[in-house]
Structure formats: C-alpha cells, structure tokens
Write a protein that binds this DNA or RNA. Structure first.
Lengths: 114, 114
DNA sequence: TGCGAATATTCGACCCTTCGCATATAGTAT
DNA sequence: ATACTATATGCGAAGGGTCGAATATTCGCA
C-alpha cells in the first residue's frame, strides 16, 4: 500500500482522535442533528463545536445539509459508525484493563464527573 | 458515556493516527514479527520504529513476547484488525473522493515517492 | 435594506507529538 | 568480564492540533 494512502488513512483516525469529535459522531449515529443541537447536547462553546465539525467535514466523515438558518449534520457512510460500534465492543471486552490504564494515565485520582 | 471513556477511546484512535503505526498494525495482521523485521520491512530508523512500538504498547494495541535476543510483536485483539479491514473497505468505496481529497490536501504537486 | 439568529473562520497562545541523534538496557556468546 | 546484537529510552527542535476570544458570513424576516 502506497504511503500516501496510509497517510490519508491516518488522517481519518486523526479526525476521530478527539473526545469531542467522537461524541459528535456518536450523537449523529442514525440521525441528523443541527450544529446548534450538537452544541447544546455537548455543552461546549459554539466556535469550538464548529471547529470540530470543520475537521470532520474536511475529512468527509460527515455531510451537511443547509435548511434555512441551520445546518444539519449526518454521518456520511455507515461504515464509520460500524468502526465506532466495533470500538465499543473492544472497550467492553477490555473494560477491566481499560480502567487500570485510565488510572495509570492520569496517574493520581480521577476527578469525579458531574 | 462518561468523558473519561471517550478520552480513552480517542487515545486509541490517536495511536492509530500515524502512517507508520498503521503500517505496523497491518504488517502484524495474523502474524508475529520482531522489532527488527518491522524495521527492515518499513525501512525506517531503529529508534523511530521502537518509539512507535512504544506508543502501540502503551495503548495496548499490541503485545510483545521476548524470545532470547529479540522481541516479537503481535496485535492484542483481532477486533482492531477488523477496524483496519473496515477502513480498507471504506477507502475502496470512496477511492475517487479520496484521490481528489489527497490532491486538495497537499494542494500543489505531490512529490513523487521513491 | 437592516437586524437578529445560526454557523463559520481567523488569530494567538499553549501543549503534545514526531523526528533524529545519542545513549542506555537486555540478551547471547566467547 | 568483554564484545556484539537487538531493542528501548532520553532529549531538544520543529511542526501541528486545540482552545477561547474576536470577527465574519449566511440566512430569514420585517
């Protein structure tokens, strides 16, 4: 496989390599949401969400549809959703190790989420 | 889904988000290779391969087995190979768009590979 | 046309990753 | 022990990603 293709594939993973973008992709599984709805569900700054959407758009992981004042996003190809689903299986399978790793990683105490 | 888990999942993608590491994972599909064999197949510096292996090890995408003088690597869970396989399907499906994107991305001329 | 709402883009600071180089560790053999 | 091979780790420089704040664009409506 030529390196240019591998670089491209790496870029796709790179696009998925951010918690917010994963959250966006998971929220978009099977349905369409506007940028505003995403912003509200994720409780993040408008500009920030928009930047992450720009990344996902640039790598063509999502497509957008303008409807009046709003822009609706959806996942471009269900294969990507399958990838995310596989990842969920992977995490369930290795949940114990995952937790241990998590603790090592932020090696002291994980602040409680609220 | 808690954000800590999503961060962890993002880290997995991050680990895959490099052409060299994708190459390593693909070479390891279904078989075991030593660090030296990987280095030779990929024609990269020893230290560099070793650093990439360290990343893959840290995220537990590969496991290693010491045998005398050498260290053999293999993929920890075939689910990850499935993810890579899905990605290959995705690329075949969108090959035309992929190529166009590639040209936009290094938007002038792509230096010939040798 | 002008205004307000929804979304996008730009900018600068900070941080993290990657590379090459140098060095360290682990194992084998003599 | 010494020497040699295989692999790993530490370090600094360069590059790229992420964030918040400010600004720009696009659309609908009066």
């Amino acid at each position: 496989m030529p390196d240019s293709l591998r670089r491209f594939k790496a870029d796709i993973f790179q696009a998925l390599a951010h918690p917010t973008r994963i959250a966006i992709m998971e929220l978009l599984e099977g349905r369409e949401l506007s940028a505003g709805e995403l912003m509200e569900k994720l409780r993040m700054e408008q500009a920030n969400i928009s930047q992450h959407l720009a990344v996902l758009r640039a790598k063509q992981l999502v497509v957008n549809r303008k409807a009046g004042n709003q822009v609706f996003y959806s996942v471009r190809d269900p294969i990507i959703s399958k990838v995310l689903a596989l990842m969920r299986r992977y995490f369930q399978k290795h949940l114990k190790d995952t937790m241990e790793l998590l603790e090592e990683m932020h090696d002291s105490v994980i602040p409680p989420e609220r």
